Computed example of a mutant assay.
Amino acid sequence: MSRIAELWPEIVQALTETFAMLIVAIPLAVLIGTPLGIWLYSTSPRGLKPRPRIHRIVDTAVNTLRSFPFLILLIAIIPITRFIVGTTIGTAAVIVPLTINAIPYFARLVEQNVTQLGGGVVEAARAMGATRGQIVREVLLVEAKPAIVGSITITTVSFISYSAMAGLVGGGGIGDFAIRYGYYRYETVVMFFAIILMLVLVQAVQIIGARLVRSLDKRNA
Protein backbone atom coordinates (compact mmCIF):
# COMPACT_ATOMS: atom_id res chain seq x y z
CA MET A 1 0.00 0.00 0.00
CA SER A 2 2.97 2.30 0.45
CA ARG A 3 3.46 2.19 -3.32
CA ILE A 4 -0.19 3.20 -3.84
CA ALA A 5 0.26 6.11 -1.44
CA GLU A 6 3.38 7.15 -3.30
CA LEU A 7 1.53 7.14 -6.61
CA TRP A 8 -1.65 8.73 -5.27
CA PRO A 9 -1.17 12.10 -7.07
CA GLU A 10 -0.84 10.26 -10.39
CA ILE A 11 -3.89 8.13 -9.55
CA VAL A 12 -5.96 11.25 -8.88
CA GLN A 13 -4.76 12.78 -12.16
CA ALA A 14 -5.68 9.57 -14.03
CA LEU A 15 -9.17 9.60 -12.51
CA THR A 16 -9.56 13.27 -13.43
CA GLU A 17 -8.59 12.49 -17.04
CA THR A 18 -11.10 9.62 -17.19
CA PHE A 19 -13.86 11.88 -15.81
CA ALA A 20 -12.91 14.58 -18.34
CA MET A 21 -13.35 12.12 -21.21
CA LEU A 22 -16.77 11.04 -19.96
CA ILE A 23 -17.98 14.52 -18.99
CA VAL A 24 -17.42 15.73 -22.56
CA ALA A 25 -18.22 12.62 -24.63
CA ILE A 26 -21.40 11.41 -22.88
CA PRO A 27 -23.30 14.77 -22.79
CA LEU A 28 -22.42 15.36 -26.46
CA ALA A 29 -23.61 11.85 -27.28
CA VAL A 30 -26.91 12.55 -25.50
CA LEU A 31 -27.28 16.01 -27.04
CA ILE A 32 -26.70 14.83 -30.62
CA GLY A 33 -27.65 11.16 -30.34
CA THR A 34 -31.14 11.77 -28.90
CA PRO A 35 -32.50 13.79 -31.86
CA LEU A 36 -30.67 11.46 -34.24
CA GLY A 37 -32.33 8.43 -32.63
CA ILE A 38 -35.75 10.13 -32.77
CA TRP A 39 -35.13 11.01 -36.42
CA LEU A 40 -34.20 7.39 -37.23
CA TYR A 41 -37.46 6.24 -35.67
CA SER A 42 -39.53 8.96 -37.36
CA THR A 43 -38.20 8.22 -40.86
CA SER A 44 -38.44 4.43 -40.53
CA PRO A 45 -41.27 2.61 -42.35
CA ARG A 46 -43.38 2.62 -39.16
CA GLY A 47 -42.35 6.11 -38.06
CA LEU A 48 -44.07 9.48 -37.98
CA LYS A 49 -42.86 10.50 -41.44
CA PRO A 50 -41.43 7.51 -43.34
CA ARG A 51 -38.54 8.31 -45.68
CA PRO A 52 -37.19 4.87 -46.63
CA ARG A 53 -34.30 5.95 -48.87
CA ILE A 54 -32.87 8.61 -46.57
CA HIS A 55 -33.46 6.39 -43.54
CA ARG A 56 -31.57 3.54 -45.18
CA ILE A 57 -28.53 5.75 -45.85
CA VAL A 58 -28.37 7.23 -42.33
CA ASP A 59 -29.15 3.85 -40.75
CA THR A 60 -26.21 2.28 -42.59
CA ALA A 61 -23.90 5.12 -41.53
CA VAL A 62 -24.96 4.75 -37.89
CA ASN A 63 -24.43 0.99 -37.98
CA THR A 64 -21.00 1.40 -39.58
CA LEU A 65 -19.75 3.93 -37.01
CA ARG A 66 -21.29 2.02 -34.11
CA SER A 67 -19.63 -1.25 -35.07
CA PHE A 68 -16.22 0.31 -35.81
CA PRO A 69 -13.56 -1.00 -33.34
CA PHE A 70 -12.65 1.95 -31.14
CA LEU A 71 -8.88 1.60 -31.42
CA ILE A 72 -9.07 1.47 -35.22
CA LEU A 73 -11.38 4.50 -35.26
CA LEU A 74 -8.99 6.35 -32.97
CA ILE A 75 -6.17 5.82 -35.45
CA ALA A 76 -8.28 6.29 -38.61
CA ILE A 77 -9.48 9.79 -37.70
CA ILE A 78 -6.10 11.14 -36.56
CA PRO A 79 -6.23 13.96 -39.17
CA ILE A 80 -9.68 15.01 -37.93
CA THR A 81 -8.55 14.86 -34.32
CA ARG A 82 -5.48 17.00 -35.09
CA PHE A 83 -7.67 19.53 -36.92
CA ILE A 84 -10.18 19.80 -34.03
CA VAL A 85 -7.91 19.83 -30.96
CA GLY A 86 -4.46 20.46 -32.48
CA THR A 87 -2.90 17.25 -31.18
CA THR A 88 -3.18 13.47 -31.55
CA ILE A 89 -2.05 12.46 -28.06
CA GLY A 90 -3.41 13.07 -24.60
CA THR A 91 -6.89 13.27 -23.11
CA ALA A 92 -8.19 15.98 -25.45
CA ALA A 93 -7.25 13.90 -28.49
CA VAL A 94 -9.06 10.82 -27.17
CA ILE A 95 -12.28 12.77 -26.53
CA VAL A 96 -12.79 13.29 -30.29
CA PRO A 97 -13.01 9.60 -31.37
CA LEU A 98 -14.75 8.75 -28.11
CA THR A 99 -17.50 11.25 -28.92
CA ILE A 100 -17.74 10.22 -32.57
CA ASN A 101 -18.16 6.61 -31.45
CA ALA A 102 -20.63 7.44 -28.66
CA ILE A 103 -23.10 9.45 -30.79
CA PRO A 104 -24.28 6.61 -33.10
CA TYR A 105 -24.11 4.14 -30.20
CA PHE A 106 -26.50 6.25 -28.13
CA ALA A 107 -28.68 7.16 -31.14
CA ARG A 108 -29.36 3.49 -31.79
CA LEU A 109 -30.33 2.96 -28.15
CA VAL A 110 -32.73 5.92 -28.27
CA GLU A 111 -34.30 4.60 -31.47
CA GLN A 112 -34.90 1.25 -29.75
CA ASN A 113 -36.30 2.98 -26.65
CA VAL A 114 -38.85 4.90 -28.72
CA THR A 115 -39.72 1.95 -30.95
CA GLN A 116 -40.50 -0.19 -27.91
CA LEU A 117 -43.25 2.22 -26.88
CA GLY A 118 -45.40 0.78 -29.65
CA GLY A 119 -47.67 2.55 -32.09
CA GLY A 120 -50.56 2.88 -29.65
CA VAL A 121 -49.31 6.01 -27.90
CA VAL A 122 -48.56 7.71 -31.22
CA GLU A 123 -51.98 6.87 -32.65
CA ALA A 124 -53.68 8.14 -29.50
CA ALA A 125 -51.79 11.43 -29.75
CA ARG A 126 -52.67 11.76 -33.43
CA ALA A 127 -56.33 11.13 -32.63
CA MET A 128 -56.21 14.10 -30.27
CA GLY A 129 -54.82 16.32 -33.02
CA ALA A 130 -51.18 16.47 -31.89
CA THR A 131 -48.60 17.59 -34.44
CA ARG A 132 -45.40 15.62 -35.14
CA GLY A 133 -43.41 18.03 -32.99
CA GLN A 134 -45.85 17.66 -30.10
CA ILE A 135 -45.80 13.87 -30.44
CA VAL A 136 -42.00 13.88 -30.21
CA ARG A 137 -41.73 16.38 -27.32
CA GLU A 138 -44.77 15.50 -25.25
CA VAL A 139 -45.29 11.81 -25.96
CA LEU A 140 -42.21 9.97 -27.20
CA LEU A 141 -39.57 11.73 -25.09
CA VAL A 142 -41.77 11.78 -21.99
CA GLU A 143 -42.81 8.12 -22.20
CA ALA A 144 -39.33 6.94 -23.11
CA LYS A 145 -37.56 9.02 -20.44
CA PRO A 146 -36.83 6.11 -18.01
CA ALA A 147 -35.52 3.97 -20.88
CA ILE A 148 -33.38 6.83 -22.19
CA VAL A 149 -31.85 7.35 -18.74
CA GLY A 150 -31.12 3.61 -18.70
CA SER A 151 -29.45 3.99 -22.09
CA ILE A 152 -27.31 6.84 -20.76
CA THR A 153 -26.18 4.49 -17.98
CA ILE A 154 -25.35 1.72 -20.45
CA THR A 155 -23.45 4.14 -22.69
CA THR A 156 -21.45 5.56 -19.79
CA VAL A 157 -20.47 2.11 -18.51
CA SER A 158 -19.46 0.99 -22.01
CA PHE A 159 -17.37 4.09 -22.65
CA ILE A 160 -15.57 3.81 -19.33
CA SER A 161 -13.98 0.70 -20.84
CA TYR A 162 -13.36 2.56 -24.11
CA SER A 163 -11.61 5.35 -22.21
CA ALA A 164 -9.40 2.70 -20.61
CA MET A 165 -8.40 1.40 -24.06
CA ALA A 166 -7.24 4.90 -24.90
CA GLY A 167 -4.32 4.26 -22.57
CA LEU A 168 -2.78 2.10 -25.30
CA VAL A 169 -2.07 5.26 -27.30
CA GLY A 170 -1.12 7.50 -24.38
CA GLY A 171 -4.59 8.98 -24.02
CA GLY A 172 -4.38 9.35 -20.27
CA GLY A 173 -6.88 8.14 -17.69
CA ILE A 174 -6.99 5.01 -15.56
CA GLY A 175 -6.27 2.76 -18.55
CA ASP A 176 -3.08 4.63 -19.34
CA PHE A 177 -2.05 4.50 -15.67
CA ALA A 178 -2.66 0.72 -15.50
CA ILE A 179 -0.68 0.09 -18.68
CA ARG A 180 2.28 2.26 -17.64
CA TYR A 181 2.67 0.70 -14.20
CA GLY A 182 1.07 -2.72 -14.54
CA TYR A 183 2.27 -3.70 -18.02
CA TYR A 184 5.49 -1.81 -18.71
CA ARG A 185 6.85 -1.84 -15.14
CA TYR A 186 5.32 -5.14 -13.96
CA GLU A 187 3.86 -3.58 -10.82
CA THR A 188 1.00 -6.03 -10.38
CA VAL A 189 -0.34 -4.45 -7.18
CA VAL A 190 -0.67 -1.07 -8.86
CA MET A 191 -2.39 -2.62 -11.87
CA PHE A 192 -4.92 -4.45 -9.69
CA PHE A 193 -5.61 -1.25 -7.77
CA ALA A 194 -6.36 0.52 -11.07
CA ILE A 195 -8.70 -2.33 -12.05
CA ILE A 196 -10.52 -2.01 -8.70
CA LEU A 197 -10.94 1.73 -9.29
CA MET A 198 -12.49 1.01 -12.69
CA LEU A 199 -14.86 -1.54 -11.16
CA VAL A 200 -15.90 0.89 -8.43
CA LEU A 201 -16.53 3.60 -11.02
CA VAL A 202 -18.65 1.25 -13.14
CA GLN A 203 -20.68 0.08 -10.14
CA ALA A 204 -21.27 3.67 -8.99
CA VAL A 205 -22.59 4.66 -12.43
CA GLN A 206 -24.76 1.54 -12.58
CA ILE A 207 -26.29 2.13 -9.13
CA ILE A 208 -26.98 5.82 -9.74
CA GLY A 209 -28.48 5.07 -13.16
CA ALA A 210 -30.72 2.30 -11.81
CA ARG A 211 -32.04 4.57 -9.06
CA LEU A 212 -32.80 7.35 -11.54
CA VAL A 213 -34.67 4.93 -13.78
CA ARG A 214 -36.77 3.68 -10.86
CA SER A 215 -37.59 7.24 -9.79
CA LEU A 216 -38.73 8.16 -13.34
CA ASP A 217 -40.66 4.99 -14.06
CA LYS A 218 -44.39 5.64 -13.56
CA ARG A 219 -44.99 1.96 -12.91
CA ASN A 220 -43.00 2.33 -9.64
CA ALA A 221 -44.98 5.39 -8.53
Rank of each mutant, 00 (worst) to 15 (best):
A93N: 13
V94N: 00
V94G: 09
I95D: 02
L98Y: 03
L98E: 05
I100W: 04
N101L: 13
A102V: 04
P104L: 04
Y105W: 15
A107C: 14
L109F: 13
E111M: 12
N113E: 10
N113M: 09
V114I: 15
T115I: 14
T115S: 15
Q116T: 10
Q116C: 05
Q116I: 04
Q116E: 14
L117Y: 08
L117K: 11
G119S: 08
G120M: 12
E123D: 04
M128F: 00
A130I: 08
A130H: 04
T131E: 07
R132H: 09
G133Y: 00
I135G: 03
V136R: 03
R137D: 05
V139T: 14
V139P: 13
V139K: 03
V139L: 11
L140D: 12
L141Y: 01
V142E: 07
V142C: 10
E143K: 04
E143V: 00
A144L: 11
K145D: 03
P146W: 02
A147K: 01
I148R: 07
I148G: 02
I148P: 03
V149M: 12
V149E: 00
S151Q: 07
S151P: 06
T153M: 06
T153D: 00
T155M: 07
T156K: 03
S158Y: 00
S158L: 01
S161H: 07
Y162P: 00
Y162D: 05
S163C: 08
S163H: 01
G167W: 00
L168Y: 15
L168C: 11
V169T: 08
V169E: 00
G170Y: 09
G170H: 12
G170L: 03
G171W: 12
G171F: 05
